[in-house]
Amino acid sequence: MYNFKNDYSEGAHPNILTKLIETNFVQQLGYGEDEYGIEAKEVLKEKIKNPHATIHFLSCGTQTNLIVISFLLRVHEAVISAKTGHISANETGSIEATGHKVIAVETEDGKLRPSDIQNALKEYALKPHVVKPRMVYISNSTEIGTIYTKSELEDLSSCCKTNNLLLYLDGARLGHALMAQNNDMTLADIARLTDIFYIGGTKNGALLGEAVIFSTPELAFDFEYVLKQKGAMLAKGRLLAIQFLELFRHDLYFDLAKHANTMAMKIVDAVQSKGFSFLTNSTTNQIFPILPKDVIQKLNENYLFYVWKEIDDDHAAIRLITSWATDEKNVDAFIADLRSL
């Protein structure tokens, strides 16, 4: 059985494991004061072209979202998200558990537009009887594989500034978005157009870890206190820092994301050649082909994947995810089985 359910089934890229072994007996200061963390932050600041950014390394995406959002919002403030957004659909109510409402917006493609923001602001205008929208949460790539263009993010950024809203970008799969064939943005564009974002390592070659970046350092004032209080400040912070240093020093991060996308697009071409359609127009490593249910049942004998959405009595959409480690021979085997059915 080959697993297309997620992009974190494997451990870590060998370069990272080698570097962890090489540095294993080198003594370092703890809690993010190690030399690898200092160097990794400088490398990332160069990549985003913002020498004044504040950067912290956390363990996972849900932890990052929970801590960042609850840190930045006051007790009466809320965050606007697409209904498909990770904080709305996949984090067990973690944001609401901190006392902050997630204002979920229906979208067709997982992406928020300025009109969605304006509608939410109108809906929650009866102050002080309703929560106050203060943050906009987006994901790139989105939870359904789509990506934002530069003009779309510019429009969102402008809308947020006009309405005094913070713009926070979940980058769990940011590498896949930036390496998509139709992408027109860079890391520097992301840093310029958002207030806070994070770069996901867990889903792109790291053992674990996310790098949260405050483009405006004033927003990060006292953030380290909250990290410590919430148990997110690792004594062995070097373990996260070394991984990001290895991923970004020579752009390995982008190479791995490009491979994952290339494997997904190979499956896309095969699905289209069979005359099947897709639930979303994804150009990243998450794809959602719509297939006959009998074909899905046969494929499930050799491959793991999620049946994402029922389309009708005879068809359903499945989710296939390729990763930095997906071997092309497994993709070719899946395509051969699909064609034979």
Rank of each mutant, 00 (worst) to 15 (best):
D269S: 15
Y303C: 05
I242M: 09
R249K: 15
D312Q: 05
L239D: 12
I311A: 02
I242Y: 06
N261E: 02
S282H: 08
N300R: 10
A270D: 08
M265Q: 15
L291Q: 14
T283F: 15
T283N: 13
K293H: 01
L256D: 01
I290Y: 00
I296M: 11
L247V: 10
K236H: 03
A260S: 13
E301Y: 03
Y306A: 06
Q297N: 12
A241I: 07
K309Y: 06
H250N: 15
D251W: 04
F305Y: 11
S273E: 11
N302T: 01
D269N: 13
L299S: 11
F248V: 06
T283S: 15
N300H: 11
V295L: 15
P289T: 03
Q272G: 12
T262H: 13
K274V: 00
I290T: 05
I242R: 08
K258Q: 13
H250A: 14
F288V: 02
V271G: 07
L247K: 13
I311T: 04
Y303A: 09
D269C: 10
L279H: 12
L240E: 03
N285Y: 12
N285A: 05
D314N: 08
A241G: 09
T280W: 13
H259T: 01
F305S: 05
S273Y: 00
D314L: 06
Q272I: 15
L239H: 06
N281V: 02
N302Y: 03
F305T: 05
G275L: 10
I242N: 08
V295W: 12
D251L: 05
K309C: 07
H250W: 11
L247P: 15
Q297C: 07
L239W: 04
F248I: 07
Q286L: 14
K298D: 11
I318Y: 01
E310T: 13
K266A: 12
I242S: 06
L304M: 07
F288Q: 03
F305K: 04
G237N: 10
D314T: 08
V295A: 14
F248T: 14
A257M: 00
Y253M: 09
A317G: 13
S282E: 05
F305L: 06
F244K: 03
V307L: 00
L239F: 03
F244S: 04
L245M: 14
Q286R: 14
S277A: 13
T283A: 14
H250F: 13
G237M: 04
K274W: 00
V307H: 00
L240Y: 07
D314F: 05
S277M: 09
T284F: 08
R238H: 14
V295P: 08
A260N: 04
N285M: 01
L291C: 10
F288I: 02
L291E: 12
S277R: 09
M265Y: 06
D294C: 03
P292W: 05
D294Y: 09
G275A: 10
D251A: 04
D312K: 03
Q286F: 11
D255V: 01
K293C: 08
S282Y: 07
A241F: 08
K266S: 11
K309H: 11
Q243W: 11
L279K: 15
T283G: 15
G237I: 02
E310F: 00
S277N: 12
A257C: 00
Y306K: 06
Y253E: 05
M265F: 03
F254L: 12
E246W: 04
G237V: 03
A257H: 01
M263P: 01
A316W: 01
R249H: 13
L299N: 10
L279N: 11
R238V: 15
